[in-house]
Design a protein around this nucleic acid. Structure first.
Lengths: 144, 144
DNA sequence: TTTGTTGCAAAATTTTTGCAGATAT
DNA sequence: ATATCTGCAAAAATTTTGCAACAAA
């Protein structure tokens, strides 16, 4: 099984949490996905795929994985949703139409954040910046 | 009672919702406050102040007031919180330490948003931008 | 071994909903 | 007069927790 998901194991070990198939499965389900998923969504995705996993395990695992920085959390319609994000600092561009989350190239932001800090005294987490709007697709294609 | 909260009536009428003392009280409780409040917090604030109001009324009113643009919603530790924001477009600076929400002067952002749009195709809602970080106070004063 | 995790079911929270009566326009 | 809103209580939905068995280190 080390051939099929070679990458899902490494980040777990590197983060100092125990490697369980449940966490690997959760991470795998989230990896490569652009839209964040709620705990319930992850759970049904896994059980639907034939995995036997408890709902509370999903809740706890997501919580833990977010804690160690492997996942980022989002507010999607009042529910907490999770997404596997790049390990480098970045900004989130949230599409309010389709829920797509993309990243903003950091170099575009750095200068601005410096100005912002100088002007307001507010120290931004370069990593926790969420911009709501409409993604390129939804901007050109009038949404449903 | 019409003397004490003269301003809370106007925005309600202007927004096309019915003016009830409950909504006025909710709006008044939120007005001038920098930290967003959850439905439960608003409810206890009101009942604590001697008002008799149902919890579901608070939920429904907050929902409605946010719908018509009188309130903005935030995700505070997984719960939905509301805040009375300026009626002009602005950005939110969220302090992860103390929960303070301040606004970012729009002129600081406009140029950057234009660049961002050109570079990514993403059209930001100038009004729905949340920057997490630490406010000026918490930056200088090491938080608890 | 020893410590961290899982699963299940129960509990705690938060939020929504039905409906009769009250209220704003 | 009439469409909207409130209050109450019940229901729904989401998330957390206790604890014994289990698995990773």
């Amino acid at each position: 099984m080390s051939e099929t998901t070679p990458a899902a194991d490494t980040p777990l070990r590197a983060s100092g949490v125990r490697t369980t198939w449940q966490r690997q499965a959760i991470l795998a389900a989230l990896t490569g996905r652009t839209h964040p998923m709620t705990a319930q969504a992850v759970h049904s995705a896994l059980t639907g795929a034939g995995h036997r996993i408890g709902l509370s395990t999903v809740y706890r695992a997501l919580h833990r994985l977010a804690e160690v920085g492997l996942l980022h959390t989002f507010d999607v319609g009042g529910e907490r949703a999770y997404r596997r994000c790049p390990d480098t600092p970045h900004q989130h561009l949230l599409c309010d139409d389709c829920g797509l989350v993309t990243e903003c190239p950091p170099h575009l932001v750095e200068t601005w954040l410096r100005e912002l800090r100088a002007a307001t005294g507010f120290t931004p987490h370069a990593d926790r910046i969420d911009l709501h709007g409409h993604c390129a697709t939804c901007t050109t294609t009038p949404a449903t």
